[in-house]
Design a binder for these strands. Structure first.
Length: 833
DNA sequence: GCAAGGTC
């Protein structure tokens, strides 16, 4: 029997589509990567009975990068990234093993139907899938067609069946346009980012950003924020005048009237009007009109709108909102949270969805009333053909969801919004008071011809106010309007400009550009304003669309656009001095930053420690900068020196739970031995005899990770510990010991290095009042109760075994240690060979 | 270490 393989873009869609096509009768299993499922059923394909296997990828299978050697920032000229540097496709997420998974499932299949999302990215993924599976699929007889594309516009029975009955082919041109975008984004983004970063970080010490990045989406996003900042800065308040009149009727309290001309900027004109009205003691109602102020019912919720609402009325950032929405989705409270669609299909079960909320204590009454009165159709929105609008699927209570920051708030908000779809103003403000119309002062009833007495008429002087900083919600709207980013990437771009220290999030989720953000954008304005204009994205996309529509050649468009940006890059490179003038005015030269910390091994003068990101050491004598680990504290380590290069060692301490190790500032960037990599401290150094090295302080193979070694932290007493030099495993031992040393001998049972411990007489936990003992941390019965496993950071629930309770070391470490523990003599021997 | 785009 023949088999048809079908592939969707994500696991949730594979499931929904399989359910529809199998009429609910498919059997499901997990794939080998644990993330994707395979749904199998019997059906007919081109008139024959066949086996169907429906599965999915998780977004892109591959992603584009430069080949390895072009990722060395020190050796590659960024200009080479425009043409010379070759690119390659790498698996987008190696942990998912997607290529292998697809091949296992595709082996022996006769046909493939591609159910990827119906957009250009989806078309591109079609070919990524085909590249992976075609080599393992059964070869067709003659020229039989075996590859099909399903085009669907919604996940409904009718649409999915319709798509299945008229299968087409994947569109190569659309896929190519995405290939071109990827290559352009990579080459342009990386070239500018590397050049800027190296140039400015080599000169200034207080930029406080680990990266001075540039990108066709993030830079215009920053541009919007700075543009508003400039408007605020250049704002000159203007004086204007308004006429204010107070009138009253009988015993009613006076009514303040607004002027229908609003304001004048010429005082004399205003005064003239006041003079005219001053002659009258009475005011007659000329006409009466009522303005309809009832708010329109909202549209059904799509991703971007959810982000806007969450930011403006819940104070939740877009990235956070997406995380919470994802969680609500996986727990079954809401439908798929990434959708552009804000319109419900005619056959969507609106009533059933509402019934789910009928027992929720917050709005049970309103919901029941609605159900009995009957529903209006929600307002008509746009159907992007991806997923239904974000919909509450299950009633939630605060008790269930209160635990995670904002989860309950977001669930509640979404249910409210769903509820609003049918309800008019008066009704939905009962559940969402903040959407109500502000209660205006009671208007006295008046009719045409009514006469009021004039209490006073005066000219009031006022000043125009500057605009405020952009809110996140404003920014999202601007990005959407200019086509910067997508619903899924908008939160990422906003997060980026904040992480890079270009903007800060102020109260009310207003985005205020930092000095760095302002100087960058002003610098682009000065050299090449196009780099920061929102049109930079749309101009490129216009070119890409030509490829997608088959109107232009992929290679030609790519070359042409790359040429333009290559020229822009060279121009930017040549005019960097004019941007640098702005930098000079705002930031301090690297030599004038930081405080003296440790001595340079070359000139033996003090180097300065620069704490601002990226934290580093700078030697003014040699004019050299040495990188340091980020996210931790650095201090001098007892003025001890590296025996290889005489640089003074520094001690790095992590913020959480105090993992620490010494490192040599020179070796950190220039690994001294062949088996070492950049970014290693003394706890990974294979120096054969240095007292700070892995060789001297390493005790045993890590109890959890494959490659790590537990290394004594010589600086940790009196709360002694050893920590894995690769993962976050930490073993606390011998608390209050006076001295802990790693002995030369190894344990006969497990080959861990023996440890010698000295206690003070009064505090010794050793039997018989002994103060010294030497033995294996894992096997020695005397040490059994003095060893406790912990983690530097509790990241994963599965890693909390031990849970802080005191546990014996015996057996546990050994049981997990399948690999041969580190043999110090063998390591030494290897080094000398 | 870099972009933007999918998605977990």
């Amino acid at each position: 029997m023949k088999t048809v393989l079908m592939v969707a873009e994500k696991p949730s869609l594979a499931q929904s589509i399989a359910k529809i096509l199998s009429k609910g009768s498919c059997s499901s299993r997990k794939g080998l990567n644990g993330a994707c499922s395979v749904h199998e059923y019997m059906g007919t394909f081109s008139g024959q009975s066949m086996r169907f296997k429906m599965t999915s990828v998780c977004g892109h299978v591959m992603s584009l990068d430069f080949i390895g050697k072009y990722n060395n920032w020190d050796k590659v000229d960024p200009a080479e990234l425009f043409s010379k540097a070759p690119t390659e496709k790498k698996e987008a997420n190696p942990k998912l093993n997607m290529v292998k998974f697809l091949q296992v499932e595709a082996k022996g299949c006769d046909y493939v139907v591609l159910w990827l999302d119906c957009d250009k990215e989806g078309e591109n993924i079609c070919f990524e899938v085909l590249d992976a599976i075609e080599p393992v699929m059964t070869r067709p007889y003659g020229g039989e067609k075996t590859v099909y594309r399903a085009k669907f516009s919604s996940i409904t029975d009718t649409d999915i069946w319709a798509a299945m009955s008229k299968l087409g082919e994947p569109n190569r041109n659309e896929a190519l346009s995405v290939d071109a975008r990827q290559e352009l984004d990579l080459r342009i983004g990386c070239a500018f980012t590397r050049f800027q970063t190296k140039y400015f970080q080599g000169k200034y010490g207080n930029l406080d950003s680990s990266l001075i990045s540039f990108g066709p989406c993030q830079t215009p996003t920053l541009g919007f924020c700075v543009e508003r900042h400039d408007k605020i800065q250049s704002f000159k308040p203007e004086t204007y005048w308004v006429i204010q009149a107070k009138v009253f009727k009988g015993k009613d309290s006076p009514l303040t009237l607004d002027w229908d001309r609003v304001r004048v900027f010429d005082r004399e004109v205003g005064q003239m009007f006041v003079n005219i009205t001053k002659t009258s003691k009475e005011a007659k109602v000329e006409s009466v009109s009522k303005k309809e102020k009832a708010k329109q019912r909202p549209l059904a919720l799509n991703t971007v709108e959810m982000l806007r609402v969450a930011s403006s009325s819940l104070g939740m950032g877009p990235q956070h909102t997406m995380q919470i929405a994802e969680r609500l989705y996986t727990q079954g409270y809401i439908s798929y949270p990434r959708t552009e669609t804000n319109h419900y299909h005619d056959n969507f079960d609106l009533k059933g969805t509402l019934k789910q909320q009928a027992n929720n204590p917050f709005w049970a009454q309103e919901v029941k009333a609605l159900l009995s009165e009957g529903l209006n159709r929600p307002r008509k929105g746009a159907d992007a053909g991806d997923h239904p609008p974000i919909t509450p699927m299950r009633a939630a209570s605060e008790g269930e969801l209160g635990g995670y920051g904002g989860t309950w708030k977001l669930a509640w908000e979404q249910a409210c919004l769903y509820y609003q779809l049918w309800v008019d103003q008066i009704c939905f403000t009962e559940v969402m008071p903040w959407l109500g119309i502000p209660v205006e002062e009671a208007m006295p009833v008046c009719e045409r011809g009514d006469v009021f007495s004039v209490e006073e008429v005066k000219l009031v002087e006022r000043q125009t106010c500057p605009p405020d900083y952009l809110t996140e919600a404003d920014l999202i709207t601007l990005m959407e309007k200019h086509g910067i980013g997508t619903d899924a990437s908008i939160p990422v771009h906003i997060n980026n400009i904040s992480q890079r220290n270009y903007v800060t999030v102020e109260s009310g989720r207003k985005l205020k550009p930092t000095n760095l953000g302002i100087v960058l954008v002003h610098g682009y304005y000065k050299t090449d304003a196009e780099l920061v204009l929102p049109t930079i994205r749309s101009a490129v996309e216009k070119q890409l669309n030509l490829i997608a529509q088959g109107k232009a050649n992929y290679q030609q468009v790519l070359q042409h656009t790359l040429d333009i940006f290559k020229r822009k890059f060279h121009y930017f490179f040549d005019s960097i001095a004019s941007m640098d003038e702005l930098m000079e005015a705002s930031f301090s030269p690297i030599a004038a930053t930081g405080k003296p910390l440790s001595r340079c091994g070359k000139c033996h003068r003090f180097m300065k420690y620069i704490q601002a990101k990226p934290s580093r050491l700078h030697c003014a004598g040699c004019d050299e900068t040495y990188s340091l680990p980020q996210n931790g504290a650095i201090k001098l380590y007892k003025e001890l020196r590296c025996p290889l290069d005489e640089f003074e060692l520094v001690l790095w301490t992590s913020g959480s739970r105090g993992k620490s190790y010494p490192l040599c500032p020179y070796c950190f960037s220039n690994p001294p031995f062949r088996d070492m990599k950049k970014g290693m401290g003394c706890n990974e150094c294979t120096h054969p005899s240095c007292q700070h090295s892995l060789n001297s302080l390493g005790i045993a193979q890590c109890v959890e990770c494959e490659a790590g070694v537990l290394v004594l932290d010589p600086n940790s007493g009196p709360k002694w510990k050893m920590a894995c030099n690769k993962c976050n495993v930490m073993v606390h031992f011998f608390e209050q010991a006076h001295r802990v040393q790693v002995a030369l001998e190894s344990c006969e049972t497990c080959e861990a290095s023996l440890v010698a411990v000295d206690f003070n007489k009064t505090r010794s936990p050793l039997p018989d009042g002994e103060t010294q003992h030497s033995g294996c941390v894992f096997c020695d019965p005397v040490f059994q109760d003095l060893v406790e496993l912990k983690h530097a950071t509790m990241r994963h629930p599965s890693m909390t075994r031990g849970g802080g309770a005191r546990r014996g070391g015996r057996g546990r470490g050994r049981g997990r240690r399948e690999k041969k523990p580190k043999d110090k003599m063998a390591a030494l021997a290897a080094y000398f060979v």
